[in-house]
Design a protein around this nucleic acid. Structure first.
Lengths: 150, 150
DNA sequence: CGCAATTGTTAGTGGAGCATACAATTGCGC
DNA sequence: GCGCAATTGTATGCTCCACTAACAATTGCG
């Protein structure tokens, strides 16, 4: 056991796995997911649900398919999430007047209320996440992540 | 070019959501997950499964609890993943000689073979991911992601 | 009109995460 | 050595998310 002992560095815990970028994205996502879930335990909302409420609030009357595309979900996944939110009276569907195939999505009053609470919780969650970085680093991080998902 | 052109282009799709770091991490993770799944369709292995095989190969005889801690999974989740791999004869459990409570995990020959194939596929997957960045950016990205999950 | 594309819906599969309860083993205080 | 607490594994059940496949309704176009 010389001074070069690998154990002194955290990296040893993962061995070669440490060099895999995708691995770190997954771990980071997991950490964010867990903290999000804790922060939102009272509100009983998931990341996806908040994203949906947020987007529908931003663009009232959006169709399900467009919502799904923006959040990178397929139609079936979008359905189940919208169903859940509709069953909880946070969201309502309306037949689009211009295109009978489409469902126009709107927040209910209750949904708007929930979103207000959610945005507050998001603030705490983001503070927890951003506390690790300078604002320059945050810009760089977001820009790099966008390069991956765009 | 600059911030203004970004806002004209894609950003509107997400509205305010665009400023949420956690949102971008989730989208990036989803994109990586999807590409990983496509790359590994033939091998029929998930990200988690590959991580487990990789770590067990790196540290033969590791206990389930330690494996779970390193990959940030609880005991129950670790169980189900190890069960799946054991049922496919990629992994085997052995009672630890030093501690009767522990299960020592080892790859089977078949598991080692599968891992070889997986590492090759990981190479392709990582190339796809890294093609967006310079090597300096990759170092910075990994370092920032590690700050989140450590 | 008739056909293809789009959108929505339904049902089923599987991975992953978590909570809870219980069993086996170990280690420690006494 | 005995008894209890801690550790580890196991079993069960729940939720969420993503995907596929099949089918229906509507729209748009040749």
């Amino acid at each position: 056991m010389g001074a070069a002992s690998l154990i002194e560095r955290n990296d040893y815990a993962f061995g070669q796995l440490n060099d895999i970028v995708g691995f770190h994205i997954r771990l980071a996502h997991g950490a964010v997911y867990r903290h999000f879930t804790e922060t939102f335990a009272d509100l009983d909302l998931t990341q996806k649900q908040v994203s949906v409420l947020w987007l529908v609030d931003d663009q009232p009357g959006v169709s399900q398919i467009e919502l799904g595309q923006r959040l990178r979900m397929d139609r079936a996944t979008t359905m189940t999430i919208v169903n859940r939110l509709q069953n909880r009276d946070l969201l309502r569907r309306e037949r689009s007047e211009t295109d009978g195939r489409k469902q126009a999505l709107y927040l209910t009053d209750q949904g708007s209320e929930a979103l207000v609470g959610a945005k507050h919780a998001i603030g705490e969650h983001e503070s927890w996440l951003k506390s690790r970085f300078t604002s320059e680093e945050i810009d760089k991080l977001v820009e790099m992540l966008a390069r991956i998902h765009d």
